[in-house]
Protein backbone atom coordinates (compact mmCIF):
# COMPACT_ATOMS: atom_id res chain seq x y z
CA UNK A 1 0.00 0.00 0.00
CA UNK A 2 2.79 2.27 1.02
CA UNK A 3 4.27 1.85 -2.43
CA UNK A 4 1.41 3.57 -4.11
CA UNK A 5 1.74 6.73 -2.07
CA UNK A 6 5.51 6.85 -1.81
CA UNK A 7 7.12 4.86 -4.57
CA UNK A 8 10.59 3.50 -3.95
CA UNK A 9 13.36 5.61 -5.32
CA UNK A 10 15.81 2.78 -4.73
CA UNK A 11 15.16 -0.95 -4.76
CA UNK A 12 18.03 -3.36 -4.17
CA UNK A 13 17.42 -7.07 -4.58
CA UNK A 14 19.52 -10.21 -4.63
CA UNK A 15 22.78 -8.30 -4.76
CA UNK A 16 26.01 -10.21 -4.22
CA UNK A 17 29.57 -9.02 -4.33
CA UNK A 18 32.89 -10.82 -3.99
CA UNK A 19 36.28 -9.29 -4.63
CA UNK A 20 38.78 -11.50 -6.44
CA UNK A 21 42.29 -10.51 -5.45
CA UNK A 22 44.36 -11.64 -8.40
CA UNK A 23 47.55 -10.25 -6.93
CA UNK A 24 47.31 -12.54 -3.93
CA UNK A 25 46.74 -15.79 -5.73
CA UNK A 26 43.17 -15.16 -6.77
CA UNK A 27 41.97 -15.05 -3.17
CA UNK A 28 38.23 -14.54 -2.87
CA UNK A 29 36.96 -11.88 -0.53
CA UNK A 30 33.19 -12.23 -0.18
CA UNK A 31 31.56 -8.96 0.83
CA UNK A 32 27.78 -9.38 0.77
CA UNK A 33 25.10 -11.64 -0.68
CA UNK A 34 21.31 -11.60 -0.95
CA UNK A 35 21.16 -7.89 -0.24
CA UNK A 36 17.60 -6.64 -0.42
CA UNK A 37 16.18 -3.34 0.74
CA UNK A 38 14.30 -0.39 -0.63
CA UNK A 39 14.14 3.29 0.16
CA UNK A 40 11.22 5.60 -0.50
CA UNK A 41 11.26 9.34 -1.02
CA UNK A 42 11.33 11.33 2.22
CA UNK A 43 12.99 8.65 4.31
CA UNK A 44 16.51 8.24 5.57
CA UNK A 45 17.84 4.71 5.90
CA UNK A 46 21.01 4.04 7.89
CA UNK A 47 23.30 1.19 6.97
CA UNK A 48 24.51 -0.31 10.24
CA UNK A 49 27.00 -2.92 11.33
CA UNK A 50 30.61 -3.12 12.41
CA UNK A 51 33.55 -1.95 10.39
CA UNK A 52 34.18 -4.36 7.52
CA UNK A 53 30.57 -5.48 7.25
CA UNK A 54 30.36 -4.00 3.76
CA UNK A 55 28.42 -0.79 4.41
CA UNK A 56 30.70 1.40 2.37
CA UNK A 57 31.00 -1.18 -0.42
CA UNK A 58 27.23 -1.37 -0.60
CA UNK A 59 26.96 2.40 -0.91
CA UNK A 60 29.56 2.32 -3.68
CA UNK A 61 27.59 -0.36 -5.53
CA UNK A 62 24.51 1.83 -5.41
CA UNK A 63 26.55 4.70 -6.83
CA UNK A 64 27.86 2.43 -9.60
CA UNK A 65 31.41 2.76 -8.36
CA UNK A 66 31.78 -0.94 -7.51
CA UNK A 67 30.47 -3.59 -9.84
CA UNK A 68 27.82 -6.06 -8.76
CA UNK A 69 28.20 -9.82 -9.34
CA UNK A 70 24.49 -10.54 -9.35
CA UNK A 71 21.16 -8.98 -8.46
CA UNK A 72 19.76 -5.59 -9.30
CA UNK A 73 19.92 -2.03 -8.00
CA UNK A 74 17.02 -0.18 -9.48
CA UNK A 75 16.93 3.59 -9.24
CA UNK A 76 13.94 5.60 -10.34
CA UNK A 77 14.94 8.36 -12.71
CA UNK A 78 11.88 10.39 -13.51
CA UNK A 79 9.54 7.97 -15.24
CA UNK A 80 12.31 5.51 -16.01
CA UNK A 81 13.72 2.76 -13.81
CA UNK A 82 17.42 2.13 -14.28
CA UNK A 83 19.29 -0.94 -13.05
CA UNK A 84 22.71 0.29 -11.93
CA UNK A 85 24.00 -3.28 -11.98
CA UNK A 86 23.61 -3.50 -15.75
CA UNK A 87 23.44 0.12 -16.95
CA UNK A 88 25.94 1.48 -19.46
CA UNK A 89 28.65 3.85 -18.23
CA UNK A 90 26.92 6.64 -20.09
CA UNK A 91 23.63 5.99 -18.35
CA UNK A 92 25.29 5.88 -14.93
CA UNK A 93 27.04 9.18 -15.57
CA UNK A 94 23.71 10.74 -16.48
CA UNK A 95 22.12 9.31 -13.34
CA UNK A 96 24.89 10.82 -11.26
CA UNK A 97 24.23 14.13 -12.87
CA UNK A 98 20.51 14.20 -12.35
CA UNK A 99 19.47 11.66 -9.76
CA UNK A 100 22.09 10.21 -7.41
CA UNK A 101 24.26 12.40 -5.22
CA UNK A 102 27.13 11.11 -3.14
CA UNK A 103 28.63 12.85 -0.13
CA UNK A 104 31.84 11.48 1.32
CA UNK A 105 33.84 12.88 4.19
CA UNK A 106 36.70 13.95 1.98
CA UNK A 107 36.99 16.68 -0.59
CA UNK A 108 39.21 15.77 -3.50
CA UNK A 109 40.17 19.31 -4.23
CA UNK A 110 39.55 20.81 -7.61
CA UNK A 111 42.64 22.97 -8.16
CA UNK A 112 42.18 26.69 -8.56
CA UNK A 113 38.40 26.73 -8.13
CA UNK A 114 37.17 28.84 -5.17
CA UNK A 115 35.05 27.21 -2.45
CA UNK A 116 31.92 29.19 -3.27
CA UNK A 117 32.19 28.21 -6.94
CA UNK A 118 32.64 24.53 -6.08
CA UNK A 119 29.41 24.56 -4.09
CA UNK A 120 27.45 26.75 -6.51
CA UNK A 121 28.57 24.64 -9.47
CA UNK A 122 26.98 21.56 -7.92
CA UNK A 123 23.63 23.33 -8.02
CA UNK A 124 24.19 24.84 -11.46
CA UNK A 125 25.06 21.43 -12.87
CA UNK A 126 21.48 20.47 -12.10
CA UNK A 127 19.96 23.38 -13.87
CA UNK A 128 19.63 25.80 -10.96
CA UNK A 129 19.93 29.37 -12.22
CA UNK A 130 23.35 30.94 -11.49
CA UNK A 131 22.16 33.62 -9.06
CA UNK A 132 20.03 31.14 -7.09
CA UNK A 133 22.88 28.62 -7.07
CA UNK A 134 25.16 31.27 -5.61
CA UNK A 135 22.69 32.19 -2.90
CA UNK A 136 22.21 28.55 -2.04
CA UNK A 137 25.98 28.07 -1.84
CA UNK A 138 26.32 31.08 0.46
CA UNK A 139 23.55 29.78 2.71
CA UNK A 140 25.12 26.32 2.93
CA UNK A 141 28.62 27.60 3.66
CA UNK A 142 27.15 29.89 6.33
CA UNK A 143 25.14 27.07 7.87
CA UNK A 144 28.31 24.96 8.04
CA UNK A 145 30.37 27.80 9.55
CA UNK A 146 32.84 28.14 6.71
CA UNK A 147 34.19 31.69 7.28
CA UNK A 148 33.20 34.12 4.55
CA UNK A 149 36.81 35.22 4.03
CA UNK A 150 37.52 31.69 2.66
CA UNK A 151 34.73 31.60 0.09
CA UNK A 152 36.78 33.19 -2.65
CA UNK A 153 39.76 30.88 -2.12
CA UNK A 154 40.46 27.42 -3.51
CA UNK A 155 40.11 24.89 -0.67
CA UNK A 156 43.57 23.35 -1.24
CA UNK A 157 44.95 25.39 1.63
CA UNK A 158 42.00 24.93 4.01
CA UNK A 159 42.14 22.83 7.15
CA UNK A 160 40.78 19.27 6.96
CA UNK A 161 37.62 20.30 8.79
CA UNK A 162 36.99 23.25 6.52
CA UNK A 163 37.46 21.10 3.41
CA UNK A 164 35.05 18.55 4.80
CA UNK A 165 32.41 21.21 5.34
CA UNK A 166 32.87 22.59 1.83
CA UNK A 167 32.40 19.05 0.60
CA UNK A 168 29.17 18.62 2.57
CA UNK A 169 27.92 21.97 1.29
CA UNK A 170 28.62 20.79 -2.24
CA UNK A 171 26.84 17.49 -1.63
CA UNK A 172 23.73 19.22 -0.34
CA UNK A 173 23.67 21.98 -2.95
CA UNK A 174 22.19 19.79 -5.70
CA UNK A 175 18.60 18.62 -6.15
CA UNK A 176 19.28 14.89 -6.21
CA UNK A 177 16.20 12.76 -5.48
CA UNK A 178 18.54 10.10 -4.02
CA UNK A 179 21.41 11.08 -1.75
CA UNK A 180 24.10 8.69 -0.48
CA UNK A 181 25.95 9.80 2.64
CA UNK A 182 29.24 8.13 3.53
CA UNK A 183 29.90 9.26 7.10
CA UNK A 184 29.14 12.91 6.50
CA UNK A 185 29.42 13.85 10.17
CA UNK A 186 32.67 12.05 10.99
CA UNK A 187 34.97 14.29 13.03
CA UNK A 188 32.70 17.33 12.89
CA UNK A 189 32.25 19.39 16.05
CA UNK A 190 28.88 19.45 17.80
CA UNK A 191 27.70 22.66 16.18
CA UNK A 192 28.39 21.48 12.64
CA UNK A 193 26.93 18.07 13.39
CA UNK A 194 23.72 19.87 14.29
CA UNK A 195 23.93 21.78 11.01
CA UNK A 196 24.25 18.53 9.01
CA UNK A 197 21.31 17.03 10.88
CA UNK A 198 19.22 20.04 9.92
CA UNK A 199 20.32 19.70 6.28
CA UNK A 200 19.33 16.03 6.26
CA UNK A 201 15.94 16.85 7.82
CA UNK A 202 15.38 19.49 5.14
CA UNK A 203 16.15 16.98 2.39
CA UNK A 204 13.70 14.50 3.90
CA UNK A 205 11.04 17.18 3.99
CA UNK A 206 11.68 17.80 0.28
CA UNK A 207 10.99 14.11 -0.43
CA UNK A 208 14.58 13.09 -1.03
CA UNK A 209 15.51 9.46 -0.32
CA UNK A 210 18.69 9.18 1.76
CA UNK A 211 20.93 6.20 2.46
CA UNK A 212 23.73 6.82 4.87
CA UNK A 213 26.49 5.46 7.04
CA UNK A 214 26.59 7.30 10.36
CA UNK A 215 29.11 6.24 12.95
CA UNK A 216 27.80 8.74 15.44
CA UNK A 217 24.98 7.03 17.36
CA UNK A 218 23.29 10.28 18.28
CA UNK A 219 23.22 11.48 14.67
CA UNK A 220 21.97 8.12 13.43
CA UNK A 221 19.14 8.00 15.95
CA UNK A 222 18.05 11.48 15.05
CA UNK A 223 18.09 11.27 11.27
CA UNK A 224 17.40 7.62 10.41
CA UNK A 225 13.85 6.38 9.99
CA UNK A 226 15.11 2.80 9.71
CA UNK A 227 18.38 1.00 10.19
CA UNK A 228 19.47 -1.87 7.99
CA UNK A 229 21.91 -4.21 9.66
CA UNK A 230 24.37 -5.09 6.91
CA UNK A 231 25.67 -8.15 8.81
CA UNK A 232 22.35 -9.75 7.75
CA UNK A 233 23.84 -9.91 4.25
CA UNK A 234 27.21 -11.33 5.29
CA UNK A 235 28.62 -13.52 2.54
Amino acid sequence: MDRIERPDLLAVSGVAKTFTMHLIGGALLPVVRDVAFHVAGGECVALGGPSGAGKSSLLKMVYGNYRVDSGSIVVRDGREAVDIASASPRRIIRLRQTTIGYVSQFLRVIPRVPALEIVAEAARAQGVEAGVARQRAQALLTALSVPERLWGLAPATFSGGEQQRVNIARGFAGNFPLLLLDEPTASLDAKNREAVIRLIDAKKAEGVALVGIFHDDDVRRRVADREIDVTRFAA
Binding site: R94, R96, Q97
Partner: peptide, 20 residues
Amino acid sequence: MMAAQKADAHLAASAVRRDD
Protein backbone atom coordinates in the same frame (compact mmCIF):
# COMPACT_ATOMS: atom_id res chain seq x y z
CA MET B 1 36.06 7.88 -6.73
CA MET B 2 35.62 11.51 -5.79
CA ALA B 3 37.86 12.62 -8.58
CA ALA B 4 35.66 10.78 -11.01
CA GLN B 5 32.61 12.31 -9.45
CA LYS B 6 34.19 15.66 -9.99
CA ALA B 7 34.97 14.82 -13.59
CA ASP B 8 31.38 13.69 -13.99
CA ALA B 9 30.01 16.89 -12.61
CA HIS B 10 32.10 18.95 -14.95
CA LEU B 11 32.13 16.77 -18.01
CA ALA B 12 28.83 14.97 -17.99
CA ALA B 13 26.99 18.25 -18.13
CA SER B 14 28.07 18.66 -21.70
CA ALA B 15 27.62 14.98 -22.52
CA VAL B 16 24.05 15.12 -21.40
CA ARG B 17 23.36 18.35 -23.20
CA ARG B 18 24.81 16.99 -26.37
CA ASP B 19 22.88 13.75 -26.02
CA ASP B 20 19.57 15.50 -26.34
